[in-house]
Amino acid sequence: MEEELKNWLVYYRNADHTRRDVLRVSREYLGLNPCRDTYNFNDGSQLELVNLKGTIPVPYKGIIYNIPILIWLMDTHPQNAPICYVKPTADMSIKVSMFVDQNGKIYLPYLHDWVPHDSDLLGLIHVLICTFGEHPPVFAKSKEQVQPLPYPKDNMLPHGAGSSMSQYRPPSYPVQTPQTGYNYNMPYVPTPGYPPYGAFPTPYPAYPTPVANNAGTIKDEHIKESLLSAIEEKLMRRMNERFQQNQAEMDTLQRTLQELKQGKMKLDGILEQLTKEKNDLDKNITVLKDKEQELDKAIERLSNQESIDVDDAVTTTAPLYKQLLNAFAEEAALEDAIYYMGEALRCGVIDLDVFLRQVRTLSRKQFMLRALMQKCRQKAGLAPV
């Protein structure tokens, strides 16, 4: 069973913790067995979940009854509380109360105030036993029986009948052992370490339980109590419907709030980026204005000066550099002349003989100038070109 349970819990977030909880419950309450089945959520979605299915021993008026329940464990267990149901047999009916609705779903403060890693399955079952001992969740389908008590037949076997509450001692309930099967002499002992259910606040008053007299006749007060019970059940159904509707609206508002918060975070990030870009842009504008003022001053200073002759402005510090400069300028002029001679030939201004003769002369002179520049650069200690 442990290996099979381990395979079932492979998709659970806290698989080891959940497996330990299930095994502890299975060893403590032999009437509960782990299973895996498909759970249908209210929104129509489905999920394969592990559940505990079977019966728990509930003492009621000196008798132990096996109450059938079904506990679904969420795949986030123990972060989220389990979903619990009462699963009556064919000869039972659900007794609607503040703790159980008409579908058998169980509502408890222990589930509502579920604390991850503090609340556990053993504590939940202990609270279920205490609660169902005061408010039985099922009663037998019988026209003669008016009192909504648990029906002790088949999987709800009474033990210790005939004891009065004043003389009540912990009765026996069936315990299955590998050697002897069911042992009906094991005393029922509540699980230690959990507070009594009275420690949990009860938000609604207890329901009155209509009781028939010994002669089997129904009096006016019995009819009145039955009507009051029916009205209470109807009000409870309407209250549950209203609660579910309000809960759905609350969930929608919570999702909208989360989306608005995420949108606000995005807008804050965009606003912060825009503020940074604006600051950078202001700095660049300030720098450009400073540069513009410098340019205006330089233009004003140059406009106030006299015109400068380019030839006079370019002077050399030594005759060798002047010879190099003149050779470079003349060589550049020859380069341009050869280019324009080629353009003239292409346009048909000169013929090929004139072009070849002139290009040969200009090329010879250009070669001599380049040789002169190389010799001058070598003489001046400059790098060769």
Rank of each mutant, 00 (worst) to 15 (best):
E4D: 14
K6S: 15
R13C: 11
R20Q: 08
V25A: 00
E28V: 13
Y29D: 11
L30G: 15
R36E: 14
Y39F: 11
N42V: 13
N42E: 12
G44C: 06
L49V: 00
L52H: 04
L52D: 06
I67R: 00
L70S: 07
W72L: 01
D75H: 09
C84Y: 04
K87T: 05
I94E: 06
I94N: 00
V100F: 00
P109H: 00
P109S: 00
P116V: 03
H117Y: 04
V127D: 05
H135V: 15
P137C: 07
F139Q: 09
A140D: 07
K141H: 06
Q145A: 13
V146M: 15
P150N: 03
Y151P: 09
P152N: 01
K153M: 11
M156S: 10
L157S: 13
P158T: 01
P171N: 08
V175C: 09
V175S: 09
G193N: 04
V211T: 12
A212H: 07
N214Q: 13
I218D: 08
S226N: 15
E232A: 12
R237G: 08
R237C: 08
M239D: 14
R242E: 05
Q244P: 05
Q247H: 08
E259I: 01
G269Q: 04
I270W: 02
E272W: 00
K276Q: 15
L281E: 07
T286I: 10
T286A: 13
L288F: 03
D290L: 14
E292Y: 07
L295G: 04
D296L: 13
A298W: 12
S303H: 09
Q305V: 13
D309N: 06
V310K: 06
T315M: 09
Y321E: 13
L324M: 07
E335K: 06
A337W: 01
G348N: 04
V349R: 04
D351C: 09
L352W: 11
L369I: 03
R370A: 09
R370H: 05
C376P: 02
K379L: 13
L382T: 01
